[in-house]
Design a protein around this nucleic acid. Structure first.
Length: 574
DNA sequence: GCCGTTTTCGGCCCGACTGTTTTCAGTCG
């Protein structure tokens, strides 16, 4: 892999900047859409798009044609885009931040520039404070006030603040849906929005319902015991905030268009836009209220999403796939994957106990796993905490536990550290005695790409290492992935027969969806495991399954969708 | 700028809300 190429994120940022500046310049709106769509495609790609472009293969990604491919090459080789440089001569660079102030857009930003000479957010603030805005055509005192309010909020709308981990909100939204279903006026109730798509973080929680008495349901909702604040409440819509700061939106909709509305409010936006674009080609106009035939004027309303997708010529698409990453084409030709489900998983291959940094005892963890229906549990305490014979003593205790606990098999696993030189912190012989070995990087995250890649590849070469734990090391909202040549590691994983983990911890979910998909396509087998450190964390497995589903994974790619005896056959030879 | 179940040219999602307007432009999701 060539060194010093721009990352996908850097490329995506360039094209978004280019689109913003073109928009300020008054360019054709469809060009902007094209650049923004390409930016998304690049950002979500699991492989380095700069390299793809240099190889002439970036045009294989939908939304990237030769013009954009050439711009990727230009940026990769020169570190700059002449198209952006040209626009910088025409427009002050600070105008982009003006345009991003909530409530403002390109047109208003341009007007502020031409009429008042505003060149930056700072200029905008002083213009507003001096009362200069209200005098402009199209703007009034309310706009001025709104702009000042937006500017006083530090970086509103730019940061990831306000997004909450899926693992935190999922129990809350499931409880809310349950409580609504219990009400006599409720008919159908479903989560919607990003939580239904199982995005790793979400902002608001959307719920869609039908009811015999809509206002009775919204009233019931606003009065639930966990509600701290009722932001808005009408007969068909209510917005509330829970005591722990989660914002819920309930919409009660007519039963005959429940399918249209649930589909619309589940999104994603990109999925809906693509769906509607495809429909336009067949003279159908799709909205949340129905599908209108442009020629006959007939409106099709769907009580179910299945009917809606079928009417438009698709299989029903699982919400986790609705990100405009090829699901529409697959649903049209009947080639959607049959996604893995929580019920497919037979065991959990990564857990900790109080032998290392876990909080539960060996027995508590095992009984907890059994209670959740797991048929096996690998205990993978950190090797560095199992020195001086403790590794062997734990194995004896695990054997004893297997003797007296029925219904679950306890595997004597271990989690070893991958050292800087790629070796692991347990010698071959004791490692060979363990039934299951996870190897993870726990230090030196900021080392250069080549070094980290070599390091993990070396661990994969170890004949006792079965699976790489949390392969990219990211922590959501806290730490980026470490810099690795992911493609090279996929090749190495296939070559050595090493599995990769989807770690189900709410702030890890590592591999992420796009990486997991690329791994499976490359032929790598995936382990979905909890990395549980306490009994209740054994329940996180569903989060890992959700991430796997977002990565298009089927049960046959998942190692622990098999009984332990079959897993052993997939593992590296003795 | 991209793309092809009608297209290599001529299209490109849809509706609500806001603030400013007397019929609409801009912004947002």
């Amino acid at each position: 892999m060539a060194r010093g190429l721009p990352s996908n994120a850097q490329l995506a940022d360039q094209f978004e900047l280019l689109a913003d500046m073109l928009e300020l310049d008054g360019a054709d709106a469809f060009r902007l859409t094209a650049y923004r769509r390409a930016a998304t495609r690049i950002r979500e790609s699991a492989v380095p798009v700069a390299q793809l472009a240099l190889d002439g293969k970036a045009t294989r990604l939908s939304g990237i044609g030769t013009t954009i491919q050439n711009k990727i090459i230009e940026f990769s080789e020169t570190g700059d885009l002449s198209a952006i440089a040209k626009l910088r001569d025409k427009l002050p660079a600070g105008l982009v931040e003006v345009m991003h102030v909530p409530g403002l857009g390109p047109k208003t930003a341009r007007k502020l520039h031409s009429e008042l000479g505003v060149q930056s957010a700072a200029d905008l603030r002083s213009a507003a404070e001096n009362g200069l805005l209200a005098g402009l055509p199209g703007l009034g005192p309310k706009s001025e006030e709104k702009i000042l309010r937006a500017l006083s909020k530090p970086k509103a709308g730019v940061t990831e603040r306000g997004r909450v981990l899926l693992g935190r909100v999922l129990p809350a939204v499931e409880r809310a849906v349950e409580e609504l279903r219990e009400h006599p006026a409720a008919e159908r109730v479903s989560e919607a929005g990003s939580v239904r798509r199982r995005c790793e973080t979400v902002r608001d929680l959307d719920i869609i319902a039908t009811a015999s008495d809509p206002s009775a349901l919204t009233t019931h909702f606003a009065a639930l015991p966990w509600v701290a604040e009722v932001v808005a409440q009408g007969s068909t819509k209510a917005t509330v905030v829970s005591h722990d700061g989660l914002r819920f939106d309930l919409r009660v909709v007519p039963p005959e268009s429940y399918g249209n509305l649930l589909q619309h409010f589940t999104g994603s936006k990109a999925h809906n836009v693509a769906l509607r674009e495809e429909a336009v080609g067949r003279k159908l106009s799709v909205s949340e209220y129905g599908v209108k035939n442009a020629e006959t004027g007939d409106v099709f309303r769907a009580a179910d999403e299945e009917e809606l997708y079928a009417f438009l010529g698709y299989e029903w698409i699982p919400p986790e796939l609705r990100e405009n990453r090829g699901e529409l084409a697959a649903a049209r030709d009947g080639s959607l994957p049959r996604l893995v489900e929580l019920g497919d998983l037979k065991g959990d291959l990564h857990s900790h106990t109080d032998w290392s940094d876990g909080r539960g005892t060996l027995e508590e963890m095992v009984l907890g796993a059994r209670a959740l229906g797991r048929r096996y549990l690998a205990v993978c305490d950190h090797a560095k905490r199992l020195k001086d014979g403790r590794l062997e003593r734990q194995a004896e205790e695990i054997a004893a536990l297997n003797g007296r606990v029925d219904g679950i098999e306890v595997l004597s696993g271990v989690e070893v550290d991958i050292r800087a030189d790629g070796s692991v912190d347990v010698a071959d012989e004791p490692l060979a005695d363990r039934a299951w070995v996870m190897a993870s990087v726990h230090s030196g995250f900021d080392k250069p790409r080549a070094e980290l890649t070599r390091r993990i590849a070396a661990a994969m070469e170890n004949p006792h290492v079965d699976c790489i734990g949390h392969p990219t090391g990211r922590k959501i909202n806290r730490r980026d992935s470490y810099d690795i040549d992911f493609e090279a590691l996929l090749e190495k994983a296939v070559e050595t027969g090493t599995f990769l983990e989807i770690n189900s911890q709410p702030d890890r979910l590592d591999l992420i969806d796009t990486h997991a998909r690329a791994a499976a396509e490359a032929g790598v087998r995936i382990v979905i495991s909890t990395d549980a450190h306490r009994v209740h964390e054994l329940d996180y497995l569903g989060l890992g399954v959700a991430q796997a589903r977002r990565g298009w994974l089927t049960a046959d790619r998942i190692v622990n969708a098999r009984p332990w005896q079959e897993v052993r056959k997939l593992m590296k030879g003795p």
